[in-house]
Amino acid sequence: MNLEEIKSQIEANVPGCSLQILLNGSPSGQHSLLVDKEHGLTVASYLRDGASPKFDYCSNVTGVDWPLKETSTKQKTKKIVDGVESEVEEVIKTATGNYLEVVYHLFSMDARQGPLVLRMRTEDRVDQVHLPSLTPVWRSAELQEREVYDLFGVVFDGHPDLRRLLMWDDFKDHPMRKDYVDPDDYEYEPTAHDEVLKRMQAHYAAQGAPSASEETR
């Protein structure tokens, strides 16, 4: 299976769509195809019915959160200031991220090929979080898209039953986002995992001198 081939196949059959191959740096070599969200549904149904091989099995659907990441690199450039050449340090700021991404892993049952990794991105992470639902194409996306909606907050247009899946209905936030903050008003019991250290320290502080109990033994 060649990703370039599939890309040109789709481009020939779905007019107007913009595709981009995203390279993967790991030895797995699973490169992915970024699809614009306007043509997401058409590309998906073409992949299922028209492409060769036909990608009829959508195995995995998941979201990834890419918050805005600003990296500033310092670069030394030579500039001529007042006729004198001098080195000036410039800070170049690049911003990446600031979108939510949905990843589909597609396989072909008959040709036994895959995974074809399909990605779609939202415009930002706040209110432009709509993406087309691919559940009409692959039913297997139904529960998984609900999960992505629940945990990441991507709103899938065209999903037959878009409700929270794992969290309860009144829950406000989206826990899998990178900037999610744990609430501190849970009625939890003092044996909770992260608290074990603090609790033990408090326990010993209340007992008085830390090693007093050990000396008497």
Binding site: N24, G25, S26, S59, N60, T62, V64, H105
Partner: peptide, 30 residues
């Protein structure tokens, strides 16, 4: 190294897959 991989096996219950994204750190990014 930074990158991603999807690995799957035939578990007794069906296709069990793990999808990992690494950003080069000690913890998986996703």
């Amino acid at each position: 190294k930074a990158g991603e991989a999807y690995g799957r096996i035939e578990a007794p219950k069906g296709e069990l897959g793990f999808y990992l994204i690494s950003d080069g750190g000690p913890n998986p990014y996703r």
